[in-house]
Nucleic acid binder design. Structure first.
Length: 622
RNA sequence: GCCCUUGUAGUUCAAUGGAUAGAACUGCGGACUUCUAAGCCGCUAAUGUAGGUUCGAUUCCUACCGAGGGCACCA
């Protein structure tokens, strides 16, 4: 059954008049029916934002309030009311399952309750709603008016670079730590995963209005460094010779030698442990020289990669600093940390809570990962007094991080409460886990170069100079790699297969970049033709409707800190656009031309903004 | 052994407790003298097993089976 509210939707677009509707409702509402404390707040929000009814968040809230009020008039006690965009466009623009949820409480069948709710809602229907219908087992579907869609599209174009942003984190200070490569070791594709996810989350948080700092934590001390320094000395006998050969590749080899020796040779192991101590104490001039030179080479090399990836860190933290600091914190809190076997200092995690006992200071008197992290939390806060500190790591450290947070909740309860650990899956090769020790690693640099070469060959644009081709090939390569990481939920492992993961077709980064470039080329061909979202109505245009969902997708990605929602949305949008493009002649001089151009323009804007949130570059031509 | 994560087309991934489980790759077949063919249109194919909760379960719970990770001085 379809109910038509019979409201006129002329050229005028009225500012929300929900206020008066609510006033009417209040007078009708029976005292005490509305138990939910959220309602007053919600109405308050409605008032504040009433200037922009054609905003997606706004209309959702408005419909939710409408359903809630209708339920209360019918004496149904409500907790939550869900209004959502149905996956199937044929089911309307928004839908609610309220009748299904509350049928039992109301003592009616779902369809009966739905019919009653619709009757109630008809009396106070906002003008954005064109029709309401009961469907299926008792869903209530809302259809919005053409005017709403036109206005919303115009507003999107108006917002330009801010289109899709929200203010849910306005005024908050957030620090996001990610990538975290270790000097002296390779920057491999696992770091690429951390970087892609971290950079995207940072950008999504910025888009939610927070003041955001990007942080990188680099392990410039520890056993891995000692192993590398040991290996350096094995490769060349004197310091001068080592310095002459110093490069990231050389360091990678040195690490592999050290790591293997550590496992297979007791003398070497003892010597590595000794080097490790000296790195901390800086008592040995030769080791200091090797260490300083190796560290500098690594850090310089990392900067080149960060730049390629589009990351600019605001803060760098080093284990050489956090270690000493963290160790002191552990020593200062003997009531929390206790002596373990062999002189180590440990934190006894509560087994009932699934926590391990972890070593914070080892038998050599050196701080471990856990103590360093503890120091890091405090140093970060002293550097930048955050409201939230997000740490992004691979999920192999999950168990340690839990222990760490438990210990931190005793030492720095206020910091522990502000810390959020986000872990992602592992990037693994079809042959299994990567290992720097066996040299079975794919470095980020090698991967980017390979993909770039493939992209370079594919470019078939006679207008491009070689330099331009090179630039675009790199953008495409970064897009392909990042998309392959961000397309799926981040807690899952990625089985990294070069051909499978790095497609340029279909569900891929380049597909998105191509759709964007193609849409731009239409606009370029349009010259100074009029672009006007208000000039025409196509209420059934799926591209139009899809475009308007963008802000709620960003919002969800922000709340759940999951970039893949944006990736999935963009691929659907690009597909929708390509289909539209393939079946519609846009520049035909017809009466709806200005409207079609508005759709194209909104597509470029949404793809550009969305790809930015994924950290994927958008070449203008390709 | 214990703990965490995870099982969806042949393959790689989606799916807010909802309505007909959605794409891509692969294969086959189409369209186009027009705006970028990295494109468009069409065809086949899937929820590990067994219970439970619910009006409704890919989604929540339990057990089993498979995969990955972790379980004291690496990070």
């Amino acid at each position: 059954m379809i109910f038509s509210p019979g409201i006129t939707v002329g050229g005028l677009f009225f500012v929300c008049d929900t206020i008066s509707n609510i006033a009417k409702l209040r007078s009708r509402k029976k005292r005490g029916v509305l138990k939910s404390t959220g309602d007053n707040r919600q109405r308050q929000t409605l008032f504040e934002k009433s200037a922009s009814c054609y905003d997606a968040h706004m209309i959702e809230e408005k419909l939710e309030t409408l359903v809630r009020e209708a339920l209360s008039v019918l004496d149904v006690q409500v907790n939550t009311v869900l209004v959502e965009s149905p996956a199937e466009p044929g089911h309307g623009d928004y839908a609610t399952n309220a009748a299904l949820m509350y049928a039992k409480a109301a003592g009616l069948s779902p369809r009966e309750l739905a019919a009653n709710l619709v009757n109630e809602m008809m009396r106070i229907l906002p003008e954005e709603v064109e029709a309401i219908e009961v469907a299926g087992p008792g869903f209530i579907n809302f259809r919005l008016s053409d005017t709403y869609f036109s206005r919303a599209l115009a507003e999107a174009l108006n917002q330009k670079g801010n289109w899709g942003h929200n203010e849910t984190l306005k005024g908050k200070k957030v620090i996001v730590e990610y990538t975290d490569p270790n000097p002296f070791k390779e920057f491999h594709i696992g770091h690429l995963m951390s970087n892609a996810i971290g950079e995207s989350i940072a950008r999504i948080i910025v888009a939610s209005g927070a003041e955001t700092k990007r942080a990188c934590y680099q392990g410039d001390v520890g056993m891995h460094v000692a192993k590398a320094v040991y290996g350096m000395k094995q490769l060349h006998s004197n310091t001068e010779s080592i310095q002459a050969h110093l490069s990231p590749v050389f360091l990678g080899k040195a690490y592999a030698i050290g790591a293997n020796a550590y496992e297979s040779n007791e003398t070497a192991k003892a010597s590595i442990v000794e080097i490790n101590k000296k790195i901390y104490s800086r008592e040995d001039a030769e080791i200091n020289t090797l260490y300083d030179a190796g560290r500098a080479v690594s850090l310089k090399y990392f900067e080149v990669i960060y730049k390629k990836l589009g990351t600019a860190f605001d803060e760098y933290f080093f284990e050489s600093k956090t270690g000493a600091f963290g160790k002191q914190i552990v020593i200062d809190n003997p009531q929390i940390f206790e002596k373990g076997e062999g002189g180590a200092v440990v934190y006894r995690g509560d087994e009932a809570k699934g926590l391990h006992t972890r070593v914070f200071i080892n038998a050599e008197g050196l701080p471990t990962y856990e103590a360093k992290e503890l120091g890091l939390a405090k140093i970060k806060y002293d550097t930048y007094p955050y409201d939230t500190s997000i740490v992004i790591t691979a999920n192999e450290v999950n168990a340690y991080f839990k222990v760490l947070l438990d210990a931190m909740s005793k030492v720095f309860p206020e910091l522990a409460a502000k810390t959020i650990h986000i872990s992602h899956g592992m990037l693994r090769l079809p042959t299994g886990k990567m290992s720097s020790r066996t040299g079975d690693v794919i470095t980020a640099e090698a991967l980017i170069a390979d993909v770039k070469e493939k992209a370079f060959e594919k470019i078939d644009n006679s207008a491009f100079t070689n330099e331009k081709k090179n630039e675009v090939a790199e953008q495409v390569a970064i897009g392909a790699i990042k998309y392959s990481i961000l397309r799926q939920a981040s807690n899952k492992d990625i089985i990294f297969d070069f051909d499978q993961s790095l497609s340029f077709e279909g569900d891929s980064g380049p597909y998105l970049q191509y759709a964007h470039a193609r849409a731009l080329s239409v606009l370029a061909k349009a010259h100074d033709k009029k672009i006007d979202a208000l000039s025409y109505h196509h209420s059934t245009n799926l591209l139009h409707k899809h475009l308007l969902r963008y802000p709620s997708v960003v919002s969800r990605a922000s709340t759940e800190r999951e970039p893949h929602y944006i990736a999935t949305y963009l691929i659907e949008l690009a597909r929708e656009f390509n289909g539209y493009y393939g079946n519609t002649i846009i520049l035909d001089g017809a009466p709806d031309e200005a409207y079609k151009l508005a759709l194209v323009k909104a597509t470029t804007l949404t793809l550009k903004n969305g790809l930015h949130l994924l950290g994927i570059p958008t070449p203008e031509t390709m």
